[in-house]
C-alpha cells in the first residue's frame, strides 16, 4: 500500500502498524508525536494501530528553536 509519511510517499505491505513503521524508521515512540490524517495520536498508545492505503501520517519531534 501507499502511505504519505511526512509529505513523502512511503510504500509498505498492507497491515503495517504504527509500531512497526516506527521500528523500521529506527524511531522510539516516546520521542515523537504523531498526526494521522490530521488527528493527533499518542504514539505510545497507538503502536498497534494499523495504517491504511492513502493514510497521511506526520511524525513530529522537538528540535532546537527560539
Amino acid at each position: 500500500m501507499n502511505l504519505h509519511v511526512n509529505g513523502e510517499n512511503y510504500q509498505s505491505d498492507a497491515g503495517l502498524t504504527i509500531g512497526q513503521l516506527l521500528k523500521r524508521l529506527d524511531l522510539q515512540a516516546e520521542r515523537v508525536v504523531l498526526e494521522l490524517n490530521l488527528n493527533i495520536l499518542n504514539s505510545t498508545d497507538n503502536l498497534n494501530t494499523e495504517l491504511h492505503e492513502g493514510d497521511k501520517l506526520e511524525i513530529i519531534q522537538f528540535v532546537g528553536g527560539g
Binding site: V5, N6, L25, L27, V32, I59, Q61, G64
Partner: peptide, 8 residues
Amino acid sequence: VALRRVDI
C-alpha cells in the same frame, strides 16, 4: 523548543 517533522 520548536516542533518539526522528523527527517525519516
